[in-house]
């Protein structure tokens, strides 16, 4: 029996080691971008080969944005990080792995694509969910991941807070509103994809707070006959940033190709890939072309409402912060 298995194993080993590129990059990303980067990496590799004649292979790693940042800090050799929010890359910069002004090195806050937070509900919208106010009604089960570990969950939280603060005009009332909302959350998964699986696969909850791209992906995977997307009139402008990790790229000698990789996001082709994967493109022309794919939502930014990520993180998500206070009660 062993004699029959050995050649098979040898064949498998050989088959998996025939791919060898001139350059290899590691892109450490957050949870919902798996499909996006499959598309983008393929397009970039082709473009790069055409321009320089060299082949490039991009390896991917996905997980909760916060824990991915932690891995890079612990030594995961990422040439590029593409995380859910600027704070997580700031944390890496805080350990000296990349320049503190990383967000200024690329246009538009180093966020070549944006997204927002929308609601995914079951077909026919049986609970009649239209706006943020509907989420705090008794008997509505809301699915959202844990803001301590998930970047998407922090955007969800801040979107709800921003809405309430604009509507009621005070931080105290916003705190009450968000507290009521989390009363309706039966389970906190660690990552955005985990929450989607909870809602879609396991059938828990009435409404999923999700990245817009994640909600569209669920529709594509499971069919529009099971779920529908409800875009609230107001939500937050989520800017997932990208950066080259200086220390790793310099050590591996991959800086040039890593920078080319991120710049490719700002080309028409890159923007088109973002739009195709339901991320909102920055380029006006592509945005116009895909206008109908995205609902009209009035978007506020984290800088407007919260004074930036560092401040928001400290106030809301740090140990003993507002999230800890409201989730305890």
């Amino acid at each position: 029996m062993i004699r029959r298995i050995l050649p098979l194993v040898a064949g498998l080993l050989w088959a998996s080691s025939v791919f060898a590129a001139d350059v290899s990059l590691l892109n450490v990303s957050y949870d919902p971008t798996r499909e996006l980067y499959v598309d983008f990496n393929k397009a970039f590799a082709a473009a790069y080969q055409k321009d320089t004649g060299k082949s490039v292979e991009i390896k991917q790693s996905h997980g909760g944005s916060g824990s991915q940042a932690r891995s890079v800090i612990d030594g995961l050799q990422a040439d590029i990080v593409t995380l859910a929010l600027a704070y997580d890359i700031d944390a890496i910069a805080g350990k000296g792995l990349l320049a503190a002004d990383w967000q200024k090195r690329l246009p538009l806050n180093a966020s070549p694509y944006t997204s927002t937070i929308v609601f995914l509900v079951r077909k026919g919208n049986p609970k009649g969910i239209k706006d943020w106010d509907d989420l705090i009604k008794p008997g509505v089960a809301v699915i959202t991941p844990n803001p301590k570990t998930s970047g998407g969950a922090r955007w969800n939280y801040l979107a709800a807070w921003g809405y309430a603060q604009k509507k009621f005009g005070s931080a105290d009332k916003a705190k009450k509103f968000v507290g009521d909302l989390y009363q309706n959350v039966p389970v906190l998964d660690t990552g955005a994809r985990g929450s989607t699986v909870t809602f879609v696969e396991r059938g828990v909850g009435d409404v999923l707070l999700a990245w817009e791209n994640e909600a569209f992906l669920a529709l594509r995977e499971f069919g529009a006959d099971k779920f529908e997307i409800v875009a609230p009139p107001q939500s937050i402008l989520a800017e997932p940033p990208v950066a080259v990790v200086d220390s790793v790229a310099d050590k591996k000698g991959t800086r040039a190709v890593a920078e080319a990789y991120l710049k490719y996001w700002y080309t028409k082709e890159g923007q088109e890939i973002a739009a195709r994967n339901s991320y909102r493109p920055r380029d006006a022309e592509i945005a116009k072309e895909y206008e109908k794919s995205f609902a009209k939502v009035e978007l506020f930014t984290i800088d407007d409402v919260f004074g930036g990520w560092t401040k928001a993180q400290k106030e809301h998500f740090a140990e003993g912060g507002i999230f800890d206070q409201i989730y305890k009660n």
């Binding site: 998996s16 590691l26 390896k59 991917q60 790693s61 996905h62 997980g63 891995s71 995961l76």
Partner: peptide
């Protein structure tokens, strides 16, 4: 569990 913590989850690697 143990492997998940030290893996880094690099695709194909």
């Amino acid at each position: 569990g143990a492997v998940s913590v030290v893996s880094g989850h690099i695709r194909g690697e």
